[in-house]
Design a protein around this nucleic acid. Structure first.
Lengths: 214, 214
DNA sequence: TTGAACAAATTGTATGACAATCTGTCAAAA
DNA sequence: TTTTGACAGATTGTCATACAATTTGTTCAA
C-alpha cells in the first residue's frame, strides 16, 4: 500500500460526495459554510475548495451570493443523463468486450452480483459493476467520465422512486450477467446492446414511478 | 442581457483555462500560487478555489505538497481522449441528425467554416463547431461533457504537431460540411460515421507527427 | 561519488476581518 | 389589504496574515 498524503479538502470532497449520492443531503438542500466548517472542524478556505470541486463536478450548483446547494433533480435532467449513460456505458461495454482480459472478465462476473438488504448497499454494488465495466476498457478517460455520470445519476433511487429494485435485485444481477456473458464472448455489439437496454429499462421504471408520484 | 454577479474565482478559472488551452501555460508547467496571486491581484484562497476547479476538470493535476501543474500530454492519454471523443461526439452527430431544428442546422453550416490566419483562431473555430454539434442534440449533459473533452484535447496542436492544419483549413471546413450535410438530411448513421472519421483522421495525423517528432 | 544536513521556497491549513449581498420582518403608505 | 420602504441578521465573497509541514536545492563532510 503506497503511502500518500491526504489533504483536508480531498477528504471533504469524498464525504460530501457520498452524502449527496446517498441523499443524506437532498436535492435543493443548501450547504451553509459556517455549519459545515463546524461539523468537519475545518477552515472555511479548505471547505470552499471542496465545494468548488463538487460544483465543478455538477453535484452542487453555485449561485453567486447565495452559496452552494445540492443540484435539483428534474425529470428532464434525469433523462438527459440517461441518454449520456447510454452513449458512454454502451461504448464501455462494447470496448470492454473487445479488450477485456480473462482476469477482468473474472472480476466482472464477481461485480455483477447485486444482493443486499439495504438500498444503500444495493446502489453501491450496482455502481461498482458499472464502473468495473468501464475499467475493463483499459481507458482511464472512460472510467472517469463514467464515474462522473454515475455520481450524478443515482439520486432518484433515494427518492423512493425505484424501491422495487430491492425486490428485483436478482433480476438485475441476471441482467448484469448477460452483459458480462457478451463481454466474455468478445461480442461487442451484443454487450453494447444489452447494456443500453439495461439502462433504458431502469430509466423507464424510474420515469414511470416519477410520473406516478407526481 | 441578464445581469449576473461575476465572482473573482470564476474569472480566474476562465483565464487559466484559456491559458492552458492556448498553451500559454504548457503541459508540465507548475503553477506557483504566490506568482499567480501577484499577477491576478487576488488572494490565495480565491486562487486556490479556481485551481481546485481546474484540477477537477482534469486540466491541471494536483500533487499533494507539490502544488498544481498543467496536465502532461502523453501519446497514450491523447489516444484515450480521442477514443472518448469518438464515442461522445459520434453520438452527438447522430443525435443531432435526429433532432436538430432548421435554425440549428443553419447555425451548424455557419460554424462549419474554419478559416483564419493564426492557429489560435483556427483551433477556436474548430472547437466551436464541435460544440455547436453538441448543442444541436438539445441535451445539456452532452454539451458539458463535450466541452470538457475538447478542453483537454486541443493542446497537441500547439506542440507544432498539427501545423498542417493551417494549410488544410479548407479541407477541414469541407469535412465539417459533409457532417452537417448528413445532419441536415436527418441521417444519423451517416453523420456519426463522418464525425468518427473526422476525429480519427485528425488523431492519425497527430500521432504520425508525434512519432516523427520523437 | 555518496550521503547527511541545512536553508529557501512552496504548499496546506487556519484565523480573523469586513464589505457586499441576500432574506425576513415589520411598520408606514397607498 | 396590498405594496413599499427600511432595517437587522445571516451568509457569502474576498482579503491579509500567519505558521507548520513538506519539498527542493545546495553545501559540506565522508
Amino acid at each position: 500500500m503506497k503511502i500518500v498524503p491526504v489533504s483536508v479538502t480531498s477528504q471533504i470532497v469524498k464525504i460530501l460526495r457520498h452524502s449527496v449520492l446517498t441523499c443524506e443531503l437532498r436535492p435543493g438542500d443548501r450547504l451553509v459554510e459556517s455549519k459545515l466548517c463546524e461539523n468537519f472542524e475545518v477552515s472555511r478556505p479548505s471547505l470552499r475548495e471542496a465545494l468548488a470541486c463538487l460544483a465543478s463536478e455538477g453535484l452542487l450548483i453555485h449561485r453567486p451570493n447565495r452559496g452552494y446547494q445540492v443540484a435539483e433533480i428534474t425529470l428532464e435532467g434525469f433523462q438527459n443523463r440517461c441518454e449520456l449513460r447510454v452513449v458512454v456505458e454502451g461504448a464501455n461495454a462494447r470496448i470492454a468486450a473487445e479488450r477485456a482480459t480473462p482476469q477482468q472478465v473474472e472480476a466482472l462476473y464477481a461485480a455483477a452480483i447485486v444482493e443486499a438488504e439495504d438500498a444503500k448497499t444495493l446502489i453501491e454494488q450496482n455502481r461498482q459493476f458499472h464502473l468495473e465495466i468501464a475499467k475493463a476498457t483499459g481507458n482511464p478517460e472512460l472510467v472517469e467520465i463514467t464515474r462522473r455520470v454515475l455520481d450524478t445519476d443515482n439520486q432518484p433511487y433515494f427518492y423512493g422512486v425505484d424501491l422495487h429494485a430491492c425486490t428485483t435485485a436478482k433480476a438485475i444481477t441476471a441482467e448484469h450477467r448477460t452483459i458480462v456473458d457478451a463481454v466474455s464472448a468478445n461480442d461487442g455489439k451484443l454487450a453494447e446492446k444489452r447494456m443500453v437496454q439495461h439502462i433504458r429499462e431502469k430509466e423507464a421504471r424510474i420515469v414511470a414511478a416519477w410520473n406516478h408520484a407526481s
